[in-house]
Design a protein around this nucleic acid. Structure first.
Lengths: 122, 122
DNA sequence: GTATTTGTCAACCAGTTGGTTGAATAAGGG
DNA sequence: CCCTTATTCAACCAACTGGTTGACAAATAC
């Protein structure tokens, strides 16, 4: 449990904002510059620049250099880290509930078997 | 895209906090009351109660009633919603990069084929 | 060089968040 | 009925967030 904690903090926080999720969705289709990314939104160019920085600090995107442009590039591995975290506990919980359901079903069956006026099941 | 937006906002924001992620991890193993959940942490009981409320508002946990106790119960479906969102764009991006890699490989091969002193590959 | 394009940094503001403490509520137990 | 247990509500505070505008920086184009 090293500092993947902080990485997860930042990654989840980054995706908690709908504008940033939209940026990620668009970046999954193609890389883009901050200018291109900012174009469709009402908010200022600087606001989008900040959002991109948040995504970058979270490790969700990286950037290269092409003349004045700084193309933004989605990093699928960071997304993978998040799914791994989530899926681990989702699976754990679902298995547990499955086991619990099975137990309840068995108990119900036992009760049934214990009924005084029970009928032979087979 | 109805109000799953807000649900995702809340769910991602909820998991952005390490204490809340820890609560989720523990709840994946077994349901627990707020008191039980609060016990291992240094912070006040009320602080944990607030954290649980955040998880509840995000749809990540539900609660029932057992005398004075209000057992907290993890909701795996909410986790599933998150993975679905993430995986959609992760897959999209990874496929795109695979295609790009393939294209680059083909281009490199063409260059190779075009070399004047090229050697037959097979 | 100077101007243009592309983007960041800095200061500020309003609203939210995570923490605190103390009071209030809810449901049983004696 | 009062007492205890379990939990929430309310008020407050410091820190963070997402937005703004204006100044600055970097790389290229002329």
């Amino acid at each position: 449990m090293g500092d993947s904690t902080q990485q997860l903090d930042r990654a989840f926080a980054a995706l908690a904002d709908p504008t940033r999720r939209d940026l990620v969705a668009r970046l999954s289709v193609s890389d883009a510059t901050v200018g291109e990314l900012a174009e469709p939104y009402e908010v200022s160019f600087q606001a989008i620049s900040k959002h991109v920085k948040v995504l970058e600090d979270a490790g969700l995107v990286t950037r290269s250099r092409d003349a004045q442009r700084r193309p933004v590039h989605l990093n699928p591995e960071a997304l993978d880290l998040m799914t791994q975290w989530i899926e681990r506990y989702r699976r754990e919980a679902e298995e547990r509930y499955r086991r619990l359901d099975a137990l309840l079903a068995r108990t119900a069956q036992d009760d049934e078997d214990r009924r005084p006026d029970k009928e032979q099941t087979s």
